[in-house]
Amino acid sequence: MTSSVDFPLLLRSADLRVTRPRLAVLDAVHAHPHASTDALIDAVRRALPDVSHQTVYDSLHTLTGAGLLRRIQPAGSVARYESRTGDNHHHLICRSCGTIADVDCAVGEAPCLTAADDHGFSIDEAEVVYWGTCPACTTSSSNAR
């Protein structure tokens, strides 16, 4: 395992059975934040070579449903998973290489959950995505000129 997180305890605290695939999926997501499903399948298979695609998909679905993982899907991208849940953070995405980085909300705990007009909705989540160019792509673009 690549993390100091007690994954069996984490699963039990969410009333989930501790299984090798779930442990491997948690480990893979903690080791590779913002990874795609395909990348996570590859990472899980390094620990469990015979695990099926469906088992990884099922584990991701269960762990996301239990709030242990978060699924994000930026516009034009495949679904990605992260272990940072339960806080008010957003994402920076490079338009050139697709790198994703976490960024804390600039204004505090959960101001994004206060809409100017909520239209009667009970808002429980807001998604803010910043798009731009990462330092590596900016540097390589400058060097190419």
Rank of each mutant, 00 (worst) to 15 (best):
residue 2 T to A: 11
residue 3 S to K: 11
residue 3 S to Y: 11
residue 4 S to I: 13
residue 7 F to M: 08
residue 7 F to D: 09
residue 9 L to F: 09
residue 9 L to P: 00
residue 10 L to A: 13
residue 11 L to G: 03
residue 14 A to R: 14
residue 15 D to V: 09
residue 16 L to M: 13
residue 16 L to W: 05
residue 17 R to Y: 10
residue 18 V to S: 07
residue 18 V to W: 01
residue 19 T to I: 05
residue 19 T to A: 08
residue 23 L to C: 03
residue 24 A to T: 14
residue 24 A to L: 01
residue 25 V to Y: 00
residue 25 V to I: 01
residue 26 L to A: 10
residue 27 D to R: 01
residue 28 A to Q: 05
residue 29 V to G: 06
residue 30 H to G: 07
residue 33 P to R: 05
residue 33 P to K: 07
residue 33 P to W: 03
residue 34 H to G: 00
residue 36 S to I: 00
residue 36 S to C: 02
residue 36 S to K: 02
residue 37 T to V: 07
residue 39 A to N: 01
residue 40 L to Y: 01
residue 40 L to F: 04
residue 40 L to R: 06
residue 40 L to H: 07
residue 42 D to E: 11
residue 43 A to V: 00
residue 43 A to L: 00
residue 44 V to Q: 01
residue 44 V to W: 06
residue 44 V to T: 09
residue 47 A to L: 10
residue 47 A to D: 12
residue 51 V to K: 12
residue 52 S to V: 10
residue 53 H to V: 14
residue 53 H to I: 11
residue 54 Q to F: 07
residue 54 Q to L: 06
residue 57 Y to W: 12
residue 58 D to L: 09
residue 59 S to F: 07
residue 59 S to Q: 07
residue 60 L to P: 02
residue 63 L to G: 05
residue 64 T to E: 04
residue 64 T to K: 03
residue 64 T to A: 03
residue 67 G to I: 03
residue 68 L to D: 00
residue 70 R to V: 02
residue 71 R to I: 11
residue 72 I to F: 04
residue 72 I to W: 12
residue 72 I to A: 09
residue 75 A to Y: 04
residue 76 G to Q: 01
residue 79 A to R: 12
residue 80 R to A: 08
residue 80 R to N: 06
residue 81 Y to Q: 03
residue 81 Y to R: 03
residue 82 E to I: 12
residue 83 S to Y: 07
residue 83 S to W: 14
residue 84 R to T: 10
residue 86 G to I: 03
residue 87 D to Q: 10
residue 87 D to T: 15
residue 91 H to L: 12
residue 91 H to I: 12
residue 91 H to A: 09
residue 92 L to Y: 05
residue 93 I to S: 02
residue 93 I to R: 15
residue 96 S to A: 13
residue 96 S to N: 14
residue 97 C to K: 15
residue 97 C to I: 14
residue 98 G to W: 02
residue 99 T to A: 15
residue 100 I to E: 11
residue 102 D to E: 14
residue 102 D to Q: 12
residue 102 D to K: 13
residue 103 V to F: 05
residue 103 V to D: 06
residue 105 C to R: 08
residue 105 C to M: 05
residue 106 A to Y: 08
residue 109 E to P: 02
residue 109 E to R: 11
residue 110 A to V: 09
residue 111 P to T: 13
residue 111 P to G: 13
residue 111 P to E: 04
residue 111 P to Q: 06
residue 111 P to S: 07
residue 112 C to V: 08
residue 113 L to V: 09
residue 113 L to G: 15
residue 115 A to D: 04
residue 117 D to V: 07
residue 118 D to F: 05
residue 120 G to Q: 12
residue 124 D to I: 13
residue 124 D to Q: 13
residue 124 D to M: 09
residue 126 A to G: 14
residue 127 E to L: 13
residue 128 V to Y: 15
residue 128 V to K: 12
residue 129 V to S: 11
residue 131 W to L: 08
residue 132 G to L: 01
residue 132 G to V: 02
residue 132 G to A: 04
residue 133 T to R: 05
residue 134 C to I: 02
residue 135 P to Q: 13
residue 137 C to G: 04
residue 139 T to D: 15
residue 142 S to E: 15
residue 142 S to L: 14
residue 143 N to P: 08
residue 143 N to A: 15
residue 145 R to V: 10
residue 145 R to C: 04
